[in-house]
Nucleic acid binder design. Structure first.
Length: 494
RNA sequence: GUCCCCGUCGUCUAGCCUGGCCUAGGACAUCGCCCUUUCACGGCGGUAACACGGGUUCAAAUCCCGUCGGGGACGCCA
């Protein structure tokens, strides 16, 4: 198991998404998954989901569920799945191999030495003094005596040694060993640390490309050291620019609230396709001015070369009151674009559960008729509730009767229009063309403009001025409801 | 503090590697006009950026140096 079996240049890529289940699925993590996914689907590789759950204290099942739930919503699949906590032996074996080569040493310094002591240090922070030089004999003796120790990597520092690697996004990277601390491989209880476990698994799973957030860029030197110490060729690295909040700092739930959780987008009515599209455009560009893209188009266009180096701002507003103002305007726009691109039947299917969960009973057939009237008018799926509200109620909620009065008109005109409309609509066929013709004719007879005829009717049946086109609306509403609402509106004028 | 990364319109970005086609392109947002029975969609147009300072060069957003600004990492967290 010590041959370098992961040669990036040959075969299909194997990539992994390795979240630590300590919270909900974060938009930054989702984006990382998506980039990995795109890369691997583009290159016919294997996507691996690995739960990096070595931090027993902070892991929760709820978090694991949140991750699954989020990925399921996004419709992103993976081919293999592992749990890091079940692979402890593998990790310890690697630690042992490194220790046997004397590339790691035991550190008997008690844990939690006190941060105060450490912070002001000038150079000694690199390792706990004395431990690195401990003779093997003494080290063995103390270990045999049962004294607890952590295992630390012996970072090569002599002769100005440097660690280097090539990042697919950030290019050639190098750092002096003198600037890398002797990081821990094993904790005093024998538990592997993240760095060790991660590298051991990446090697064992034959990961060819590690695509992850840029916050790991400086950790990569340590990882390269581990891979090499254990006799493996490091995989290819590609670090993604970070997603930051409008204040410029890394997105965090602590500071930025629910807008960093994927489920927030789902619940607000984002389409998975649109959300993925949005995330892809943060830190990556197809470089041809295309923006609205399907999953397939993204897959076809994706390449590591298109990834930027500068952090990208997710332009949300915490103080906003409505969902539309809360999210990045571009995300909302993209969502509206994707909604408009959906076939009526498909959009209708997306809308149905939202309407029903709101306690409204509506048939599939009726939803199918309502959908085309609101498709161009909603930006988030949940907008259906406000955009089509008047279709869903028997009794219209109260509205300002002044709305019934048309532009450049008065109460008398409104009354005239509605009264005449009631007569006309009592007999006319409820189809777009007849409706259009007869109502226009009626307006002419009354000597008013078509718009002055339509507005009172629109308000009477919709309860507000801004609504979908009138004739289509009436068609769906039907004669009975229309007449009832007009009859109710007439006495309110005045 | 140490190390690393980054810096084009308010935001996402193209252009930078392979200087001239850049009086810097697109998109969102915003403003205005048009279409129109309202809203929306759509169409047209406007405002708006190469962080700063030095070089190199006939020529720099593009190359070099410095400054400033922002971010990240420095845990027996991941």
């Amino acid at each position: 198991m010590s041959e370098p079996l992961n040669s990036p240049s040959h075969g299909k890529p194997r990539v992994r998404f390795a979240p630590s289940p300590t919270g909900f699925l974060h938009v930054g993590s989702a984006r990382t998954f998506i980039f990995n996914w795109l890369y691997v689907r583009r290159n016919n590789g294997t996507m691996i989901l690995r739960l990096d759950d070595t931090d027993v204290e902070r892991n929760t099942d709820a978090s694991v569920n949140s991750i699954f739930e989020g990925l399921k919503w996004l419709g992103l699949s993976w081919d293999e799945e592992y749990k890091q906590s079940e692979r402890g032996d593998l990790h310890r074996n690697m630690a042992d191999a490194i220790f046997q080569k004397d590339l790691a040493y035991r550190d008997f310094t008690p844990a939690h030495t006190g941060d105060s002591e450490r912070s002001g240090a000038q150079g000694t922070w690199l390792f706990n003094p004395g431990m690195r030089e401990l003779s093997r004999e003494e080290s063995d003796r103390r270990a045999a005596a049962g004294e607890p120790f952590a295992l630390r990597f012996r970072v090569p520092r002599e002769g100005g040694q440097v660690v280097r690697f090539t990042d697919a996004v950030y290019g050639e990277q190098m750092k002096a060993g003198a600037d890398i601390e002797d990081f821990a491989l094993l904790r005093s209880g024998g538990m592997p640390t993240y760095h060790l476990a991660s590298c051991a698994d990446d090697a064992d799973l034959r990961i060819s490309h590690i695509i992850r957030g840029q916050d790991h860029l400086s950790n990569t030197y340590k990882h390269v050291l581990i891979f090499e110490a254990a006799g493996f060729t490091p995989p290819q690295f590609a670090h993604l620019p970070l997603l930051v909040a409008p204040d410029g700092t890394k997105l965090s739930k602590r500071r930025h609230g629910p807008v960093v959780s994927v489920t927030t987008y789902r619940d607000a009515g984002f389409l998975p396709e649109a959300f993925i599209n949005f995330l892809c455009l943060l830190g990556w560009s197809p470089k041809n001015d295309r923006e609205q893209m399907s999953r397939q188009e993204l897959t076809d266009a994706f390449s590591l070369e298109g990834i930027n180096r500068a952090n990208a701002v997710v332009n949300f507003k915490e103080s906003a009151t409505t969902p539309e103002e809360t999210f990045d305007p571009k995300a909302v726009w993209l969502n509206a674009e994707h909604i408009r691109g959906l076939a009526i039947a498909d959009l209708s299917q997306c809308l149905l559960p939202i309407v029903r969960e709101a306690g409204i009973s509506v048939t599939e057939e009726r939803m199918l008729r309502i959908t085309p009237l609101i498709r161009e008018r909603i930006k988030l799926l949940r907008d259906v509730l406000t955009a089509a509200d008047f279709f869903f109620v028997d009794q219209l909620p109260p509205y300002d009767p002044a709305e019934l009065i048309p532009q450049k008109g008065d109460a008398a005109m409104a009354l005239k229009a509605l009264t005449r409309a009631k007569e006309v609509l009592a007999t006319i066929e409820f189809k777009h063309d007849p409706l259009d013709q007869s109502l226009r004719a009626a307006a002419q007879e009354l000597g008013i403009k078509a718009g002055q005829m339509f507005q009172p009717i629109r308000v009477a049946v919709c309860g507000r001025k801004n609504a979908p086109p009138l004739f289509e609306t009436l068609e769906v509403l039907g004669r009975e409801t229309t007449l009832t609402r007009i009859a109710q509106a007439i006495p309110r004028i005045g």
